[in-house]
Amino acid sequence: MAGDGRGPALAQLRRGVLPYCVLAALAAEQRYGFELVGVLSDTYGLATSEGTIYPLLSRLRRDGLVATTWRESEAGPPRRYYRLTEAGERALAAFRADWRAFRSAVDDLVLAGTREGKDDA
């Protein structure tokens, strides 16, 4: 919600990569919705309105990239757990390759001439 013009660009970037961040967050372990939202939001600051992750999860499920199972919880009702499907793993692997190329291209351009650009490339 930055009012300096950076807001919309960052929001679009975030929206573009969020599906793959969701896949990546599920790559190592299954998570239930509330937990997954917490990881993306608290740990990585990737969700501006957390509620919008649920429609994204539904879409990933419809596209066959994640699958869900119900599991009992020690307190309260059963929870819906999300895990990667094989198609989801392939999509994530493909994105990793794309992302490396994309990231280094943007780094070269945007960070050119800065200390960061010289040192961290």
């Binding site: 309105s49 957390e50 509620g51 919008t52 429609p55 539904s58 879409r59």
Partner: peptide
């Protein structure tokens, strides 16, 4: 607050579908 406004969430759902 962190969840976002209901209208925002519905708009995201409409976008995804």
């Amino acid at each position: 607050d962190r969840l976002g406004r209901p209208e925002e969430i519905v708009a995201a759902a409409a976008r995804e579908t």
